[in-house]
Computed example of a mutant assay.
Amino acid sequence: MLIQPVMTHAPKQIFGQLGFDDQDEAQETLEWGHLPSGAQVVAKGTPIFPRLDAEAEVNWIKAQMTPPKTKATVKDEDRKDEIDFDTFDKSEIRVAEILDVEKVKGADKLLKFTLDAGDEGTRQIISGIAKYYPHFEELKGKKVMAVVNLKPRKLRGEMSEGMLLSSEDSKGKIALAILPDNTENGALIG
C-alpha cells in the first residue's frame, strides 16, 4: 500500500489477487513474512501489467513522431503560364503587420485590412477571404506577406493597394501566409 500515492490502481489489484481486503486497517502494519492467515490467493490472476506487443508499440511511437505527409495535387486547369525571372522580379513582396481588419460594408466576402508594410503611413488591402476567417479580429497583430506594387484598384468603393499572399488547399480552403511575430515590417521577401 506504500506505493499507492504513485500507482493508484495497481496496489488494490495486487491485494485483491493475494486475497487481501485493501480496506482492512491491519494491512497498514503488514510486515514482510507475516501474512494474515486465511487469505486465499487467486489461482490465476489477470495480469496487472500486461506484456505489450513491442512491434505495435514501436509502430505507434513512430506514427506519433512522423508528421502526416500531404501532397497538393495541382490540376492542369489551375496551372498558369510560365513567366520568366525578370517578370517575377517585378513583384515587390513585403512583410506587413495587420493593424486593423474589418468587414467591407455591403460585401459578405470582403475584408478590409489596414497594414504597416514599412511605408510612410499605412496601406489598405481588400481581400475576399471573409468566409475563411469568421473571427477576423484575431488577425490583428499578425505578420503576413503582401504584394505592395500592384496598381491600386477600387473594390466595393474601397481602394485596395496590393494583395495578401495566401494558400488554397485541395478542398478550396484559403489560409493567409502568416509569418513569425519577430519578422520586421517592410522586410523584402524574395
Rank of each mutant, 00 (worst) to 15 (best):
K105T: 10
D81K: 12
H135K: 14
K143T: 00
M65E: 08
S167I: 15
R51T: 11
S127W: 00
S37R: 13
S167K: 12
V101P: 00
F88L: 14
I93P: 01
Q13T: 10
A56R: 11
F136A: 04
T87C: 11
P152V: 02
D89S: 15
N59P: 04
Q4P: 06
Q40W: 02
I93S: 03
R51W: 02
A146G: 01
K112R: 11
G190V: 07
A39W: 05
E31K: 14
L18W: 09
L2Q: 13
L52K: 09
T46L: 14
G141F: 01
A43E: 08
E184I: 09
R51P: 03
P67Q: 10
R153Y: 00
K105N: 07
I48G: 04
A177T: 11
F15G: 12
I174C: 06
I174T: 08
A146C: 03
G172A: 09
Q124R: 02
F113A: 01
P180A: 11
V6Q: 07
L176Y: 01
E138H: 03
K109Q: 05
K105Q: 07
N185T: 14
V147F: 00
R156L: 12
M65F: 09
M145V: 05
E184K: 12
F88A: 13
E120V: 07
M1Q: 11
D81Q: 12
G118S: 03
S127G: 03
A10S: 15
L179I: 09
T114G: 01
N185G: 08
S160W: 00
A63S: 09
K62E: 05
V144L: 02
A175C: 06
A72P: 06
I189P: 00
L165C: 07
K44W: 03
E102M: 05
Q124E: 04
T122S: 05
W60N: 12
G172C: 09
E184W: 00
G157C: 10
D108N: 08
K69S: 06
A43F: 04
D169M: 08
I125W: 00
A117H: 00
L115P: 00
S91M: 15
K62H: 08
R79W: 04
E31W: 10
G190K: 06
G172R: 09
V95A: 06
D169V: 06
A26T: 13
G157Q: 04
A63N: 11
E31N: 13
S91N: 14
P36K: 13
A39T: 12
I48E: 04
D169I: 06
G33W: 07
V6R: 06
L176Q: 03
E28A: 15
K80R: 15
F49M: 10
T29L: 15
T70H: 12
P36S: 13
K44R: 13
E158G: 01
Q40H: 03
